[in-house]
Amino acid sequence: MDFISGETVGIILFFIGLFGLMTKKNILKTIMSISILQSGIYLFFIADDLPNNSIPPIGETLEKPVADPVPQALMITAIVIGLGITAIGLTMFIHYKKRYGISFWSRNRSEERSDQ
């Protein structure tokens, strides 16, 4: 099955995430959608230039073809940033929820909650 490669799955995940962002009003689901979307991008990158039976580019003598290390190095950075993004998003969400008592995107909030 050539169709199910890392790249196609990555693209599909990206659009699933985008769909979630377009349609879901819940902020937690927004954060989850962003995570899904970013995982799609990571997969897309890592699957790039990855020949069959390739080995990691470690060691001095390399008999087999090696995987391209650049995308992997880039993605480890992007994953760390993504982690930070999720953490900050959740922090903002908790603050918002504590303050207004709702967990969805809406500008028409009733007054600020006083019991906190």
């Binding site: 990206f14 962002l21 970013q38 992007a78 903002m92 995107w105």
Partner: peptide, 26 residues
């Protein structure tokens, strides 16, 4: 807080698009 959250999520999505574009370019 609300404005900051909207800014944050919209722009995070924006830079994800950028990263995806970089993937194609690479």
């Amino acid at each position: 807080v609300y404005d900051g959250m909207i800014y944050f999520f919209v722009n995070v999505l924006g830079s994800s698009f950028f990263l995806f574009g970089i993937g194609f370019i690479y």
